[in-house]
């Protein structure tokens, strides 16, 4: 299979920060807002270079979403920054009415998504945010896999007219996306061609899927790996084309199986090409404190869990 090289572990949130730095230099309409988490969102460089285009709102996320909506009226492109939990669940109605329903060009940028936030525990580990955001009409939902892809996605969404939810995380993970790869919203990336099973993965689970595919290859199983960085709009064509070839699919995400990527894939296939599917996701549960690796293991979100799901779904193939 195709080999991917980890260019050096890095966190996706730093990819966001790097993307914001570049946007600060290239797009005068981009403004940043933050709810007391500048260090966590890695946007200090943007602030240093563009102090007049940064708004510190304090610990007041609802107000931040409303201010962001207002800033669009006047032509600005606001990027809000806080943890994923406080970017979505805490402010759902503000996003729904003032941003989504009002059609405002706000970029909701959310760090520390999922269990890999680690030791802070379940109060901060949102596993429902993809579902919340994808249910909003007109909302684009993106969950990039590594530093380079998060940087590219950050830059790309500034050019997209309309509200976007950009989800990324805290831990340092493998960085394998080519630094010069352009980010195309809604365009799935074929990472490894295979014939026996399709693995569609998003976010941190993409790298785990590549490891799983390598392990499976050693067992004589040919796994196709597709990076679904954009959950909405979903690249249905890429998924359908792949499962027509492989005949079964595993979805992999750091999110509840209710409302996540897996459900979007299942819906697509139920309509267009019914296919056996296994879900690598949390099982309608909250997270807990622990190291990212321990939590990925316990909640079945690592390459071993993907490998197991592949073996299970292969059994269901006609």
């Amino acid at each position: 299979m195709k080999k991917y090289i980890d260019q050096g572990k890095n966190d996706t949130r730093s990819g966001y920060g790097a993307g914001m730095t570049e946007l600060g230099r290239t797009n005068p309409k981009v403004v940043a807002l933050c709810a007391d988490l500048v260090g966590s969102l890695k946007i200090q460089e943007f602030i240093d270079e563009n102090p007049e285009r940064f708004f510190q709102v304090g610990i007041a996320e609802a107000n931040m979403m409303g201010i962001a909506a207002g800033l669009t009226i006047g032509g600005y492109i606001p990027f809000t920054g806080t943890f994923a939990n406080f970017s979505t669940g805490r402010v759902y109605d503000q996003i729904r009415q003032s941003i989504a329903y009002s059609g405002k060009n706000v970029k909701i940028c959310a760090s520390h998504a999922g269990v890999t936030l680690g030791e802070d525990g379940a109060t901060h580990q949102i596993l429902e945010d993809i579902g919340l955001m994808k249910m909003l009409p007109g909302m684009t939902v993106i969950n990039p896999c590594d530093f380079n892809q998060t940087k590219a996605a950050t830059i790309a969404i500034a050019e997209h007219q309309g509200p976007v939810y950009l989800r990324f995380g805290r831990p340092k993970v493998a960085n394998f996306t080519p630094a010069d790869q352009k980010f195309e919203i809604g365009k799935a990336l074929m990472l490894n061609e295979g014939t026996d099973v399709t693995i569609v993965a998003t976010g941190h689970l993409v790298w785990e899927s590549l490891i799983a595919a390598e392990n499976l290859e050693n067992q004589g199983i040919s796994a196709e790996v597709i990076n679904i960085h954009t959950i909405k709009p979903l690249d249905e064509e890429a998924i359908i084309k792949s499962v027509k070839k492989t005949g079964c699919v595993v979805s992999a995400e750091e999110h509840n199986f209710l409302g996540g990527l897996g459900e979007s894939v299942a819906r697509t296939l139920a309509i267009h090409h019914p296919t056996p599917q296994a879900f690598v996701a949390t099982q309608d549960t909250f997270g807990e404190s622990g190291t990212p690796a321990q939590l990925m293991e316990k909640y079945g979100l690592n390459n071993k869990a993907i490998e197991k799901a592949v073996l299970e779904v292969l059994e269901k193939k006609a």
């Binding site: 609802a62 107000n63 409303g66 909506a69 800033l71 009226i73 109605d93 405002k104």
Partner: peptide
């Protein structure tokens, strides 16, 4: 210029427009 109905959101929006 903005949807309203769910209460309490308008002042934040107005502030954003004022900043713009």
């Amino acid at each position: 210029r903005i949807a309203s109905g769910s209460l309490g959101q308008g002042m934040s929006v107005a502030i954003g427009a004022a900043l713009a």
